[in-house]
Simulated scan of single mutants.
Amino acid sequence: MVYLALIAGLVLLVAGGEGFVRGSVAIAERLGMSSLLIGLTLVGFGTSLPELVTSVQAALDGAPGIAVGNVVGSNIANILLILGITALIYPVLVDKGVLRRDGLVLVVSALAALGIVLIGALGRIAGLVLVAMLIAYVVYSYFADQKAQASPDFEAEVEATGGTQPMPVSILFVIAGLGLTIFGARLLVSSAVEIATAFGVSETIIGLTVVAIGTSLPELVTSVIAAVRRHTDLALGNVLGSNIFNIFLILGTTALIQPIPVPPEIVRLDIWVMLAATALLLVFAYSGRQIVRWEGAAFLVAYLAYVGWLAVGA
């Protein structure tokens, strides 16, 4: 039963996040918000909603390994697993504007996470700083891209989320999506903790692998669809934005709601893997202005090696 609960939790998280994004985008468009602002706020927040609710729930349940491991593991999976699969399907095109805007912010967010991990605790002051950095990032991104507005591809992506729905239906999507996400997070966290206890595996490893991959499913689906349609520049922007939101929004909000210690396993290995993956992504992106198939294969091999190391350690 516990495995069914884990799978059900993941399904509810993905369905809830999708419903929340569809409803929020539809309401925002009816209120006259631009596609650019919708993308920077509602879509970015919505795709990170599963990670956010899961980490907050884990922190409230006294499972810091899942709360922090979920964020670090999701960022690792976003780069090595999701971009790896995407690049194997079709080379990931690098949008210079997106890379220029988000590349530096991605490095800053990764270094901020490193600082918190080395301190050993995720407190409210750190949470406040992270949330403030998120607000600054959104404001900067909005004004930096105000002239260009959104690309035709992005307009189509936002429209595909259901912006033409009637207002009552959109509100229902938001409420139902949020409810499904919260319930799914509770199922996921409780079942993950139970599985970890039964097998003698630390909560941190469960958070870094099963929970992290599960909560990254919206990004995975979005990126694969973008690759099939050969709009892989959207996939790169999706991963960059998601990683930034994961650190600033999720760690920041979790710390404000429930301060938690940082598990020592993350200090020893996982934060450094996240930093190495981030550096490798930027090297590949800047070197050829695209991430080609062999680089995607290198990402996947690195991810399999990382998960294998965790499995051996467990």
Results as ranks from 00 to 15, higher is better:
M1D: 14
G9Q: 06
L10N: 08
V11C: 10
L12R: 02
G17S: 14
R22D: 00
A28N: 01
L31D: 07
G32M: 02
L36C: 12
L40H: 04
T41Q: 09
F45L: 06
E51D: 10
S55C: 04
S74E: 13
S74I: 09
S74Q: 01
N75F: 09
A77Q: 07
L80M: 09
L81I: 08
I85P: 00
Y90L: 04
V94E: 01
V94D: 00
L99H: 05
R100A: 14
R101I: 11
V105W: 12
A110H: 06
L111H: 09
G115Q: 04
V117N: 03
G120L: 06
V131Q: 02
Y137N: 10
Y137G: 05
A144V: 15
S151D: 07
A156Y: 11
V158Y: 07
P168G: 03
V174H: 02
L178R: 07
T181F: 10
A185Q: 01
V189C: 05
V193A: 12
F199H: 11
V201I: 15
G207T: 02
T215P: 10
T215G: 04
P218T: 04
P218R: 07
E219L: 09
E219W: 13
I225L: 12
H231M: 06
G237E: 06
N238L: 07
N238V: 07
V239K: 02
G241E: 05
N243F: 11
I244T: 07
N246W: 05
I247Y: 05
L249H: 03
L251A: 01
G252S: 06
A255C: 01
I257E: 01
Q258T: 14
P263H: 12
P264C: 10
I266M: 07
V267A: 14
W272M: 00
A276H: 06
L282C: 07
I291P: 02
V292H: 13
A298R: 04
L300G: 02
V301D: 09
A305W: 13
